[in-house]
Design a protein around this nucleic acid. Structure first.
Lengths: 319, 319
DNA sequence: CCAGCAACCCGAAACGTTTCGGATGGAGCG
DNA sequence: CGCTCCATCCGAAACGTTTCGGGTTGCTGG
């Protein structure tokens, strides 16, 4: 493999000038720059990234630690996240390191190890729980990171999130406009901050419409089609006339169990879970999961550069 | 971040001895080794992988390049592969770099770039086509690699594969034993070597049973449930009585279209596609995809060490 | 004629590690 | 005592790059 020294010798220049020429520094004549570029092509010079990293302190590596196979993980979402982020980082010339946990590994401990050996420039965290221990570890470290979502409302770290409050508000308001009298909010686990945000939004919509808060029945739980079906049966028995589903899988289950329900749902626009799996009518707030990859990558880059970007993505109501 | 120099100063030792102690070299006293390890823990020393790589030529990084979203890719298999391999490498302390191609990227070109800047120790290739250009690129490079499958029978590079010939043979033989008179082989695309291997195995089984080779109708194509259904209808119209499906998704389609068919299939034992999705009776050769991760990781390690491991995994007939 | 200034160039140090080729001191032995 | 041998240690070089601080030209204006 040809090195900078080889190239310098070949061109009768100093290593310094060759380096500066290739990196387009100012005090190299245009003629020399051209000559160097030509020579580099000639002898097939490729910069050694490792050496460059050693000097610059950057590794060009970003990492993400994901749970292995387990019951609770939403595999569809995880897959889409991994593929989307990886593609986006690859596009920027960054190497995406994927660390899949083995059964029984502690996520926070894995993050600690990762940042301790300091071999990555940045870390991505997804699906945070309330007061997520992974985030605690990362905040204690010197390694920049960004979170997809937030583990608490007053997050002081870089994140990209969607406006969950607006989701709850807009979906509830739409159902109320359609004349629903008793609403159910079927959403994710209670330890996920987005669930309480959506609830707060829905409650605000009730208040605006002058409806009693007790009208809203809140059910937390796993976001699967099976759970949607089970809850749908319950709602039918209770005679409720409107439901807000936290995602399309829940919505599909609710619709199947309870075809006449006025249904509103948030749609992550998963590539492998098309909206048309849920028969209309359906009120949706749409915020494609895949819209997050670019701001996440940009955000992590900014965090690495020392910033603290916090992005809230818009949602779009579709009736 | 603490460096070797810090640690040496802290222990009143030379950088040399500290390095040798940590790497368990021979000419360091046991006492010193212990003292160094203790000190390292104390000040939280973590070796700088970049520096180590620069010196040793090793980075501790292995990479895999996968296609992005596209029609032809079997996403279930790809995901299981990515997750399985990543977990296995993580377990060994290697960092798994996942590069997802963007639309329109040339896979071979991406591999060339990857090996040219020489930042990874090894590469994994999956789902090779006949005379796969990615493999050509890697063979021309100095970077070790291992292939899951083979792009040709006389592969001279490290690989882990299953015995496709045995699959074709055993499934065909089982169907013949059950009295089938006209067999269809519904398998993957024609440019996949495993398809021709399975076909050769099936033909051998026919020959052993003294049945005319023309009895076997071969259909290549994508391995989806939809295709299985389409082919199933065709088989029913033709009045064929036995079929070999290349995987369980094809089998599911065939069974749905043609419930009375004598069905045999190869089962990769995908975690997200349970065998019981295909109603019995069903003859299967079972070879869990996930059995490949350990030999692949071992094999890549061996390839990096200079070997050329070639592993053929067993299959298991289940009637 | 000379100071000042651009424009171009270079040597050497630094990043953190591994490793080669000695150095040191003490034990064992004739 | 003089010698070898072994265990243990160390200085310095090397990996390939970037960059700091300092040259050397040759031209301009005073």
């Amino acid at each position: 493999m040809a090195t900078l020294k080889d190239l310098a010798r070949h061109l009768n220049l100093s290593v310094t000038q060759v380096s500066r020429a290739l990196n387009d520094h100012s005090d190299v004549s245009v003629a020399t720059k051209e000559r160097v570029r030509e020579g580099a092509r000639e002898i097939g010079y490729r910069p050694n990234l490792t050496a460059r990293k050693l000097k610059s302190g950057r590794s060009g590596l970003v990492a993400m630690i994901v749970p292995g196979r387990s019951e609770t993980v939403e595999i569809e979402i995880l897959m889409e996240t991994v593929m989307g982020l990886s593609a986006e980082f690859s596009r920027r010339g960054l190497q995406f390191v994927l660390h899949v946990l083995s059964e029984g590994d502690d996520p926070a401990e894995a993050h600690r190890k990762l940042v301790q050996n300091g071999s990555v420039d940045g870390v991505i965290v997804t699906d945070p729980q309330l007061d997520d221990p992974r985030i605690v570890v990362l905040q204690d470290s010197a390694t920049p990171f960004i979170v997809h979502g937030r583990d608490r409302l007053d997050a002081a770290y870089p994140f990209v999130d969607i406006d969950h409050r607006a989701i709850g508000h807009d979906l509830a308001a739409a159902l109320l406009r359609r004349g629903c009298r008793s609403l159910a909010l079927i959403d994710g686990p209670a330890d996920r901050p987005y669930a309480s945000l959506r609830r707060a939004g829905a409650e605000a919509a009730l208040a605006e419409a002058g409806v009693a808060p007790a009208t809203l029945h809140v059910h937390p739980g796993p976001m699967t089609e099976a759970r949607g079906r089970a809850d749908g049966e319950y709602l039918r028995d209770k005679g409720m006339d409107g439901a807000i589903a936290g995602n399309m899988m829940l919505a599909a289950g609710l619709r199947a169990a309870c075809p006449d329900l006025s249904l509103a749902a948030h749609d992550d626009a998963l590539l492998r879970y098309a909206a048309d799996r849920v028969p209309p009518p359906l009120i949706r707030t749409v915020a494609p999961l895949s819209d997050a990859w670019v701001p996440l990558c940009d955000g992590l880059a900014e965090a690495i550069a020392g910033g603290r970007p916090q992005t809230l993505l818009d949602i779009h109501l579709s009736e």
